[in-house]
């Protein structure tokens, strides 16, 4: 419990900044929607819908109906996803490795607390951070999308999207934890996790361009909970939920295994 409280305290500032950025992002992008909503007429939407996927992703609007607030939100959503993934990767990869990096590992590990318990406390602290990030983004999205949507009910769509993001956050956080327990050099944990995150992001863009490689969608989490699919398509697909759960379970399990045996760098 002490470790958990300490972690929460030390992450308060950065979490606050992240939350403010997310609120500002949602507010400003939806505010811009109000300013630009007149340009996207029906024929434009019609034309966009006929575009090949590659072009859609180049224009950034995807197959969303930009004349509706929720459609505009859906088009912007990939950036929320990207920021959430970034935040989760950083939290996951830093929370364990920073002890070694900051030379506090000796202090912590000499306390009468088993390593497994240290990991658990830190895991819960990371989870709390992620969930607060998600809830803050969810509430601000709900408010701002609702504000501009002219009475349409958008709660369901926003909820679906944010649940997808939550799953993605879990994946990258646990990946970060696992890598920081596994890699010999604690300083490499976050660059490595971010590297994997960016590689999977770029892969998800490549899949949009070239449908020949669409089978690769199983290896990039950014495709698991695609905004288009969640809003207009099949919704949550069982296969992706299973893959995500497997990744999270394996990574967290791996964290306990590797970190218990870890030769701490002091």
């Amino acid at each position: 419990m002490n470790i958990y409280i300490k972690e929460m305290k030390s992450s308060t500032k950065s979490l606050l900044i992240w939350c403010l950025v997310m609120i500002a992002f949602v507010a400003s992008s939806m505010g811009k929607y109000a300013a630009s909503s007149s340009i996207s007429g029906q024929s434009l939407n019609d034309m966009i819908s006929k575009m090949p996927d590659a072009l859609k992703s180049m224009f950034g609007s995807g197959s969303f109906d930009l004349s509706k607030a929720i459609g505009f939100y859906g088009a912007m959503f990939i950036y929320i996803v990207l920021m959430a993934a970034l935040h989760a990767s950083l939290i996951g990869s830093n929370i364990l490795s920073k002890e070694e990096d900051d030379k506090t590992a000796e202090f912590l590990m000499s306390k009468p607390v088993p390593r497994a318990k240290v990991i658990t406390s830190k895991l819960f602290a990371a989870l709390t951070n992620i969930i607060i990030f998600n809830v803050v983004t969810f509430i601000s999205s709900l408010y701002f999308v609702g504000y501009y949507s002219k009475g349409e009910n958008t709660t369901g769509d926003v909820l679906k999207l944010m649940l997808g993001v939550l799953a993605l956050q879990f994946i990258y956080m646990s990946l970060g934890l696992c890598l920081s327990a596994f890699l010999k050099n604690p300083r490499l944990a976050s660059p490595f996790t971010i590297g994997v995150m960016l590689a999977t992001y770029i892969l998800s863009l490549a899949i949009d361009i070239d449908s020949h490689i669409s089978d690769l969608k199983y290896i990039t989490p950014f495709k698991y909970f695609d905004a288009k699919n969640l809003m207009y398509g099949k919704g949550f697909e069982i296969i992706y939920i299973v893959i995500s759960a497997l990744i999270v379970v394996f990574c967290i399990g791996g964290t306990y295994v590797f970190y218990q045996k870890r030769d701490l760098k002091i």
Binding site: P52, D53, A54, L55, I209, D210, S211, H212
Partner: peptide, 10 residues
């Protein structure tokens, strides 16, 4: 090349 083919159709 794939992109070119799709985009030309469009």
């Amino acid at each position: 090349p794939t992109f070119y083919k799709n985009a030309s159709l469009f």
